[in-house]
Nucleic acid binder design. Structure first.
Lengths: 217, 217
DNA sequence: ACTAATATTTAGACTAGCCTAAAAATATTT
DNA sequence: AAATATTTTTAGGCTAGTCTAAATATTAGT
């Protein structure tokens, strides 16, 4: 049985591995978890002892099959609860993250699976992130980052990379949401900012924003 | 902000006060919480310091207004989640207690209130226990314990006192559920066991069982 | 009212998860 | 390749919540 804290470490390490595609180092985890590096070292030893990841002093860390499975179970719960909150309880997509951080640790597997069924087995959460099924499987969507789109190209927004409250609120304020058709009108050489078209509106967005939006062509 | 453990103590103390209608002593709490008396003493001091209850060494304990409010908030969440599990996720009434023990500690008030609305503001949970509203108010149902019913009298089962898995499963096996019409056919002087009638069936139940069933006449 | 039994509290210890500060390893710069 | 900077680990400490064992209060029995 894992503690909430252990589950959080596994989840964040999984997310970092997805993001960076390399061995994950102590400081990176510390930043994500918002703890000191020394605390992370302690926990990594503990998780290695529990056969959830491979840890070599000074060499970073990598989840093993076991650890990946646990991480995916937490992520599954997180995303199902987010979906529940938005679809059934009328929450906005920028309000659900912190609550899901608590709900993701509820232990009953039966609960998770019944919730999944109740929601009609959703495949993506309100931020466009894939929801693993009971077995931990999910398919990676073929998407392209808005910043990689050429001039005059367009696509439908299917996911956001960063799902912090502040970023999501920024998008909401500009009326940008999952399902929007986005067209690149102009790209500024100088700072890689973009002029984009959504419906009848035209905006300017920074490269940073564009890096966090994923489209389907 | 209260920890899960503090919330559990407040909840159990509240339940004990309801049940016994007297000051609650250390050992009683220890049994309910499944901890040692010494651990209970520690926690009582802590809760008294936080101005949640009145504690005098060797004299037992009593929740103050503050503590009662917190206890009721936990109880509200517990009972709303139980209702959700039974009504929306197809759980049986004997499967929901342990899961609700975890869910009752999820902190968001907005979540609780949206859940309440989603369930259409239920006033009792699946075991017939009243659900406090946002303000912590609920009305005590006028009920009579089955063991206080006279021969040939009858009523509708509206609540169970004990809602342990084992008791609820016992009732399910005998097809006794909330809403059943129960009639007392015979009362055994010797051990206060009862012959009761439900629909076309006649059973014998012990005094202990009768003590845990509440009816509306 | 004294003694015995029971209930409660205190004292001291343990674990998980965090911390700070110092030491050690690794990486980078010159 | 030596010196410096950065990263990581170790050592030791803290808090919450638990425990056991011993000490102290209260209650009950004679």
């Amino acid at each position: 049985m894992l503690t909430n804290s252990e589950e959080n470490y596994l989840k964040e390490i999984y997310n970092l591995e997805e993001y960076f595609n390399t061995e994950i180092n102590t400081n990176l985890i510390a930043k994500k978890i918002d703890a000191k590096a020394s605390s992370v070292t302690d926990m990594l030893k503990k998780l290695a002892n529990k056969d959830l990841l491979i840890y070599q002093k000074y060499k970073g860390v990598k989840l093993n099959t076991n650890g990946k499975k646990k991480a995916l179970s937490v992520i599954r719960k997180h995303r199902l609860w987010e979906t529940f909150l938005v679809e059934k309880l009328d929450f906005n997509w920028d309000e659900v993250h912190d609550i899901a951080e608590e709900l993701e640790h509820i232990r009953s597997e039966k609960l998770t699976n019944h919730l999944d069924a109740f929601l009609n087995f959703p495949v993506v959460d309100p931020h466009g992130h894939p929801i693993p099924n009971k077995e931990g499987d999910f398919k990676k969507m073929e998407t392209i980052c808005l910043s990689n789109l050429g001039i005059k190209q367009e696509g439908v927004l299917v996911g956001v990379k960063n799902s912090s409250d502040t970023f999501l609120r920024f998008l909401s304020n500009k009326n940008i949401s999952i399902g929007c058709k986005i067209k690149v009108v102009h790209k500024e050489e100088f700072d890689n900012s973009l002029s984009i078209n959504i419906g009848n509106n035209q905006f300017n967005i920074s490269e940073n924003v564009a890096n966090n939006l994923y489209l389907k062509k």
